[in-house]
Design a protein around this nucleic acid. Structure first.
Lengths: 219, 219
DNA sequence: ACACAACCTGACCAAGCGGTCAATAAAATT
DNA sequence: AATTTTATTGACCGCTTGGTCAGGTTGTGT
């Protein structure tokens, strides 16, 4: 480990360091504001205040409101794609779908704002990420439905329509983020506890895995 | 049937007639615009254009943007509550929950804009219908969970957590409205056909009813 | 026919918006 | 130390927004 690396790039890359710090601060603030107010309701001023920067500085890092918004949406999309890994390297539907549910529920818990921004974007007709839907998401979906079809052919689960099964998984898991406020209200105004989240996961997995007649890897 | 009633109140209630026509035109346009652009992104001008009225006329019927929005949200809420009737007068979970899924899927198909407005409202923290969540919706939910618990006690379905089951029903059915654009994109850019909708309903019902181990009314 | 109330609307306004820019400060390079 | 590059910011601008209002029009009761 060289000295410059150990002291974390004092002279040269301090610029980059500051730049990245400001960018992430802005992105975090933006995610929250976009989630709470929607794209139209969000203001650059509010994002700037929340990030602790003057408004003009935002436009130095992100030229327009739309550019900033686009980055926020892309970040979320990548997090979601990463959750798909659980799906792939699984011997059977119980492990694969079970792990996928766990992963997506965890995302709903840790990144509720991101989920809301995504939902809002799609609800409004996906004005900025339509191409993602048509390319990356479509490819991803086709791969997964093929996977599910294989499980069905192997008799490891009931012959349910893979597409609608995927929709169900998305809907159910993301609901805990997008409608978190409603759930919290019905929970007596208190956020879900660790135990509540565990119960949510267990219930969702139980119903869906039994619903598709899934069997474990042991044949 | 009197003459005045037959000719549908020509002299007296023509005012009311016009009033109601304009109000519903405004409300329909507002629902669409709020759904497509969100509360912050929607403009009174656009709503007025879509309703075929000058903007100032909107403010004659609805004093403020928020008042108009509130009415839109309330209308949707009432439609949803009415879908609950299917739940009540049912002998067992297969009929009750099955009919409820059918009803909510039909709402997602017929009133996608309303569903989106509701989703948006809740996602943004329910700023205008928080009281509804705390009163009407909470009462409704408690009644339904009690119903489900009874079914469980009677051995008509597996002992799943009723609250999370309800969330699953809401999430899955509303997903077809709120994320309709995404579904349409993954469907090759075409809206779901009659057969697609039927398949969606059947798949959702099959997975959930099997998932909760529901049995029909015949014991 | 008259008077009164309800309805309609073009023109207007203050406020807030996204975005710009010139001037300044800080850091890196020479 | 000088100079160039990068980062920062208060002040500002054109434009759109929700909302107002005076004056005109239409419908209703007498």
């Amino acid at each position: 480990m060289t000295e410059t690396a150990r002291i974390s790039r004092i002279p040269k890359a301090r610029r980059q360091q500051i730049r990245q710090a400001n960018e992430t601060a802005i992105l975090q603030a933006a995610e929250k504001v976009f989630a709470e107010a929607g794209y139209g309701g969000a203001t650059m001023q509010l994002i700037a205040d929340m990030a602790g920067l003057p408004k003009a500085n935002l436009h130095y890092y992100f030229p327009t409101k739309e550019a900033l918004y686009r980055r926020v949406v892309q970040n979320i999309f990548e997090i979601w794609l990463r959750a798909a890994d659980s799906f792939d390297q699984a011997p059977g539907p119980v492990e694969g779908i079970g792990a996928y549910i766990d992963a997506k529920m965890e995302i709903s818990r840790r990144h509720p704002d991101g989920s809301k921004v995504w939902a809002s974007e799609v609800m409004h007709g996906a004005p900025v990420i339509q191409d993602y839907l048509e390319t990356t998401l479509r490819d991803w979906t086709e791969g997964r439905t093929a996977h599910i079809r294989r499980w069905i052919d192997e008799g490891r689960m009931a012959p349910v329509d893979p597409q609608h099964l995927l929709y169900m998984l998305w809907a159910t898991t993301q609901h805990y983020a997008d409608f978190g406020h409603q759930i919290e209200t019905l929970n007596g105004g208190r956020p879900l506890s660790d135990r509540d989240w565990q119960k949510a996961k267990d219930t969702v997995k139980a119903i869906i895995l039994r619903g598709i007649g899934a069997t474990g890897s042991d044949t």
